[in-house]
Design a protein around this nucleic acid. Structure first.
Lengths: 125, 125
DNA sequence: AGGCTGTCTCGATGTCTGTCGAATCAAACG
DNA sequence: CGTTTGATTCGACAGACATCGAGACAGCCT
């Protein structure tokens, strides 16, 4: 299951080193796009973007579902569905401790995405 | 139509100054999420991510549709549809000059998105 | 054990999205 | 002009998605 795959996987995205060069530097290959697109797709919903922000900015690095759900006017199952989407996109990790489930951001992945979108500042145009 | 709206708009995203604080710094408000999510959504498709990269990394800052279409095994209308999506998300601008249409990246918007995803590096944990 | 609370899964439903072929529009060229 | 070439729009269709209520599951507490 962890025998260095031929293609890039989501697990690789949490590494310290950048997986890819910035979007604007050179054309990204199809395989890379296929791996990264789902992460952007997961962030492409207002509710999930807010959830991601709440999780990533949580004071202790993690936040309880019980604090996330009441922040939206949506049913519990719907929030759970969005959290699962973020999980499957590799953006967050879930961890059950007793009654409550805590979510924490995979900062490595966020950093990779930020690097990918980074744009050179032009030298005085 | 352009009388300084109460809420953030896509046009603001191309400004030089950052529109928002990073995701992980503080929770982003619902209105901000509603404006930014469509941009991530547009990047959430492998074809569009590659298109975006091809446009952003074009040597002259712009690239012809006639160079984009043959790079994929997709019909012309389908590529056109994806380009429209990128356009409506505010990520690219289109410009017809004679027979050909050229696309260029709105680097300001890309920069905003990168800033939003930026993550602080922890001080030796 | 039995009940309670928090979270997730399942099934259903209406909407949105990716894709294509055909038709249309825009500009160049005979 | 008519024709050709490049790009978009239109109409259609299969598949994916957001949302919900009902039910299942996991831990607490008495």
């Amino acid at each position: 299951m962890s025998k260095q795959p031929a293609v890039l996987t989501l697990a690789d995205l949490n590494a310290a080193e950048p997986c890819c060069t910035p979007l604007a530097e050179r054309r990204i290959p199809a395989e890379t796009a296929a791996v990264l697109a789902p992460a952007f797709k997961a962030l492409g919903d207002p509710v999930r973007l807010q959830l991601m922000s709440m999780i990533a900015s949580a004071p202790d690095g993690e936040i309880c579902v019980c604090d996330l759900t009441p922040a939206f006017e949506l049913s519990g199952p719907t929030i759970s569905h969005h959290l699962r989407t973020l999980r499957e996109a590799g953006l967050v990790d879930a961890d059950r401790r007793g009654t409550w489930v805590y979510y924490r951001a995979r900062t490595g992945v966020l950093r990779q995405l930020a690097t990918l979108l980074a744009v050179e500042v032009l030298p005085t145009s």
